[in-house]
Design a protein around this nucleic acid. Sequence first.
DNA 1: TATTTTTGTTCAAACGTTGAAACAAATATA
DNA 2: TATATTTGTTTCAACGTTTGAACAAAAATA
Lengths: 343, 343
Amino acid sequence: MASKKKTTIKDIANVLGITPSAVSKALSNHPRISDKTKTAVLQIAQNLNYQPNHLASALRKGKSNLVGVIIPKANSHFFSSIIEKIEDVLNEKGYNVIIAQSNESYKKECKSIDALLYTQVDGIIASMANETVKLDYYEKIKSKGIPLILFDRGENDLNVDYVGIDDYLSSHMVIEHLVEQGCKRIAHIAGFSHTRIYKNRIRGYRDALEKFGLPIEESLIIESNLGIEDGRRIMRQLLELKNKPDAVYAAGDYAALGALQVLQENHIDAPKDIALVGFTNEPFTSLVTPSITSVEQHSEQIGKVAAETLLKRLGSPNEKVSLNKLILPAELIIRSSSKKVNI
Amino acid sequence: MASKKKTTIKDIANVLGITPSAVSKALSNHPRISDKTKTAVLQIAQNLNYQPNHLASALRKGKSNLVGVIIPKANSHFFSSIIEKIEDVLNEKGYNVIIAQSNESYKKECKSIDALLYTQVDGIIASMANETVKLDYYEKIKSKGIPLILFDRGENDLNVDYVGIDDYLSSHMVIEHLVEQGCKRIAHIAGFSHTRIYKNRIRGYRDALEKFGLPIEESLIIESNLGIEDGRRIMRQLLELKNKPDAVYAAGDYAALGALQVLQENHIDAPKDIALVGFTNEPFTSLVTPSITSVEQHSEQIGKVAAETLLKRLGSPNEKVSLNKLILPAELIIRSSSKKVNI
DNA sequence: TATTTTTGTTCAAACGTTGAAACAAATATA
DNA sequence: TATATTTGTTTCAACGTTTGAACAAAAATA
């Protein structure tokens, strides 16, 4: 079968009686190659079904045209649509994208980083695992001079480009909305405060309460991993308080969903008895009954901007471009779970 | 900064006063290299922070250790957990995984295939886009002699290894369950019959009805893309029939969810009035109320077997191993939406 | 016609690693 | 002690492409 031996630039050269180097130049449209040769080369290349050997050219050029993307989990609309957008933008410019999932594990994240470095990616776009507190592996990327862009889950200490939303302001939007609905005791199912975005959401929550003259009660702020089970557990915990909240703001949609389930199991009406707001605007928030109010982060936009920022870095390497901290606007999507009927 | 020039095998050789080739052999634990040199090399490699250049070794060895995975959309538990498992198995053996999403588009799928081939992947694991009917690009993979494994969405005509579940039997399980619940008029929200898996689900549905002595009515079988909107549209259509069904079997969970929404909007009780069964066991099926009965395909298992099958091909290339058609068992997860209370 | 410029191509080295073959030294076997 | 074997290393070419320099021929300029 013809499948065994791949055709190389050399084969084309032989057919035409010219040198491989001429073929190479012809293929890359070098100005000094005659149009005659160029068309001839293209023709033969087609005939022989020539496919350039990326490995060889990458080696020679010291550039792999591969970009690594590290995400906690592809299994969410948020991340998968970001990836889709990143692919769009980078493919357009001739880059291919390698996706690695950390599964929220620090160890897996480190392995992924090593794998990407080993594959000689030209750049990395990443969102950190929840678990990650040590930044050594990210420092490693930086120290190799490989452009690194963080999105969503970033870390200020790293001093790299970042794309995300204004979590602090988003919390304000949420609280403002709930206050407008007449809520006075707003609980916060929070993410772990060692992660920047969750810390900011907590800060925003506190400051907003203060702004609206509501008291801050520590018993109403509970940190977790924001999974469904966390939401269930914490909601139960909140319902056991002598003084129950009249609203719950969860920093993640899955936690919000868990909370909703517990409310329904206890025949507590959302939004009438307790209003509920989530975060991330996962598709299911609009599918469950009642639909859940949530914060849309415009993931495609985040993906687009992250990819474009990387391209900028790749275009002008080791240039001392000042750091980009790109904060995109978020949007509160108001649904049934927080619309008090009596208002 | 030290980041600019990467240390190579040559640098290590220079430090130790030996040849690059000796270093290479030491690093790959060649038996003829003395332990003394080996430890020395390892030591210096560490000191100089040496990272092997994958590109060079891949070029030389004619093997990239990269495997491409093509999926329609990462945004589902089914596909993302398959990927996770594939990564597990392949990373273990020193392979890295490149993920490409086709977004159910034939054009994007073709582009992805080209990108993977260009990147010189050693093998490809793929699940075909719904849209795909022309197999030319998959033939291209085959013709290059690159191992190809299909899963879930496969195609018999391609003559390649396949991993999936027994769709025909799964339909039988569903119908049997519904019949046990006393259902007599079972509608089928089907996938497009040009796709093998959906064709088989339809065949299973028909044959099972026949087996249980139930009439087959063409008006109760409607093909679609199985999105939420499709489910809604088709459910409305079914409710307009003079003779309504008493059960609906959807070949996809999203379609089932859409159907459920329409039932609730029309105050039709599931399962009492109309029982409902979905397919794929997406996480949300257990989260909505009522929870939706669905078919679990054991995605991790599919991922594991697909990866292992590829490894087998990579291990013994161009060997005439007979084709593997691996059909794994599926499982019906019975939930509220199909449990008739009066039985 | 002599000289410069332009055009189209070839030459040769490089990218970093690998592995077969060659080789010398050390060790074992006769 | 002479010869065979083993051990540890070096030599060298190769993987396929790219690129700057060199070169000859053709075209333009003087």
